[in-house]
Simulated scan of single mutants.
Amino acid sequence: MNRTGTYVAFDGLGQADPSKSDFRYYSLLQAWSANKQIDFKITNSHEKTYAVRDSSSRATLYARIRERLSASKNMVVILSENTRKSGSVLSYEIEQAIDNYKIPLIIAYPAYSAIWNVDDDLSVMWPTALSTRINMPGTEAIHVGFKKEPLMNAIPRFTINGEHLSNGRNVYSRDAYVTWEIVK
């Protein structure tokens, strides 16, 4: 399968109402991509396979996740202060992305405009699946503020066949955020 998609993962927080979960950030990514006035395009891995219904079995859901990950060049992981440590599908998605598909992670934090170091403030939002893998050899990740510019920069760069990240704790420089006019 051609690995051209970006898989977007977030914690649905067990909510039926998407506005009460981190789904709203996924929706914002979709809106940026759909807006012809914004130079932001994402090939969404979720649109490459059959939809999964709320009534689908966990086995069906996990099979679709694996199918989508196998078509993905990278994964955007959205983490908020509400992200659960365990018990969500997000944990499975992270495990599969790192362990089986060797997909680089672009970890975006909606509570932050810019990230210049990976510290305890960020790690409290990590699901256990990420915490146990972040320092493992072979894990590739960059941590960014949830802003259009760093996401636009990271998505085409850090891919299965693109630039490789040295470890699981990479960040952009302060100068990059200044260039993007996110900070002064």
Rank of each mutant, 00 (worst) to 15 (best):
G12V: 06
T60G: 01
V8G: 06
A59G: 13
A34H: 14
W116E: 00
S45M: 07
R174I: 05
I142V: 11
N82I: 01
I134G: 00
I155L: 06
Y7L: 06
L13V: 06
Y101P: 10
Y101K: 14
E181Y: 03
K20D: 11
S113H: 02
A31F: 11
R68T: 11
N153L: 13
V178N: 12
S57H: 13
V118K: 00
S33A: 09
M136E: 15
N153H: 14
N170L: 00
N35F: 12
R174F: 07
S72Q: 07
L29W: 12
G138E: 10
W180R: 05
I98R: 09
S166C: 09
V171R: 01
G14F: 10
E140Q: 15
D17N: 14
V183D: 05
T159F: 14
S131Q: 03
M1E: 12
T132V: 13
N153P: 01
A154V: 03
E181V: 05
K147V: 02
E181S: 13
S19R: 15
Q96W: 01
V183E: 10
V8Y: 05
W32D: 09
S33G: 04
E149C: 13
M75T: 12
H164S: 15
D22W: 01
T128Y: 02
T83W: 15
Y62H: 11
R84A: 14
S173M: 12
R58H: 07
F158L: 05
G87R: 06
T139G: 06
D17M: 07
A71L: 15
S45F: 02
R68S: 13
T139E: 03
W180M: 08
F40V: 02
